[in-house]
Simulated assay, not measured.
Amino acid sequence: MVNMSLVSSSEQKIRSAVLGAAGYSGAELCALLAANPYFSLDYAFASGGRTAEPLSQLYPRFTNAIDIVVEPWQDERISSLQIDVAFLALPHEASEAVTPLLLAAGIVVVDLSGAFRLKQADLYPKYYGYQHQHPELLANADYCLMEWLSEVPGDLISVPGCYPTACSLALLPLIKNELLAEHNIPVINATSGVSGAGRKAALSTSFCEVGLNAYGFFGHRHRPEIEQNLRRKVVFTPHLGNFKRGILATSVVTLKAGITPEQVKQAFTEAYQHKPLVRLLSQSPNVANVAGTPYCDIYWQQDGEQLVVVSAIDNLLKGAAAQAMQAANVRFGKPETAGLFSGVVV
């Protein structure tokens, strides 16, 4: 449980900027910040090669709702920024490059990329395709899987990936309660909507081309993150589905002999009974019911020693922007769910 007495109780608005505001997750962050009574959305930036344009021009649904111009980013802007926190919805290498500059300026960084998720720098060339240039920051980054956060995060917050959020929330109650067979390797199949690939146009993510296909066998960048969270190997196979947003993850595990349904239920109940953004369901989740919300829905079925756990999240919200907002709320001593409901767009 987070000790809220460790953080400020000041009611002054927390000044913020979003870098990467032109992308899907960045735009969702702008909406959440605009709706959060404790934060102000002071700046929105996109890549340096773009021209300045209103967010409502990029996303017409924000017309008459969010009045901010998305400006082209230059590192030189840092010295003139009067903000408390920067949310980075950027490519991994771009986040890694700008983070030390922001931290040096006394700005809290909430990073939505994978730049600081893994604690082992030598995994980045294999899974992310580049050599980490700031491995010293990996140890200092606070990885904020919010329902399992044990203390108030510091000045560098690493937001979990969308697939790892859905999979880890589904399996951690079982692992923490030592219910899985000793050498069991969870088998996880997870399907994401096309928004998970970002806003950039590509034939492979065109709605007219997407059906349902698996990809990233054994080498997907989220696999080591899931294994880091669960502290065990997994077989993780992601899929791309023909829908806009959401992730449905199906995890198959083997329990220890003699584990009862009551023990499984107790593990999930104890883990999440005081977690407002996790819903334990009596029927299998549907991505349509989490799209546009900050929830993670979880359901399980047991047959002897075999257990299937199904989890569903919105990849852009609980898997990105909403979890980033959760983390920032806690970091600055505000209610954990502030801004998470009035700011979402269904």
Rank of each mutant, 00 (worst) to 15 (best):
V346N: 11
I188V: 15
R331M: 09
L172S: 01
M325Q: 03
R231C: 15
C296T: 13
M4N: 00
G129H: 06
A86L: 02
L169V: 12
S284G: 04
G339H: 01
A166M: 05
L316Y: 00
G219C: 07
L32P: 00
H239L: 12
E262M: 12
L90C: 11
A170S: 14
S79T: 15
Y295H: 02
V210L: 10
S95V: 01
S204T: 09
K126S: 15
S9L: 10
S168G: 14
V110F: 01
Q12C: 02
L145G: 13
P37K: 10
G161V: 04
A312E: 06
D75P: 03
I66R: 02
P125A: 08
Q323I: 11
Q273H: 13
V7I: 06
S56Q: 09
P135S: 04
F218Y: 12
V344N: 05
Y124M: 10
A321Y: 10
Y272W: 05
A214E: 04
N64H: 06
K119S: 08
D75H: 15
V159T: 13
A115P: 05
L240T: 05
N3S: 13
P173M: 10
P164R: 08
Q263W: 00
N229E: 15
Q82C: 07
L212I: 12
G219W: 08
A21M: 05
A27M: 11
P91M: 07
T254A: 13
V330E: 05
F341S: 03
N3T: 12
E225H: 15
T269L: 10
R279G: 06
A89C: 06
L240M: 14
A181L: 07
R50N: 13
E227F: 06
L138A: 09
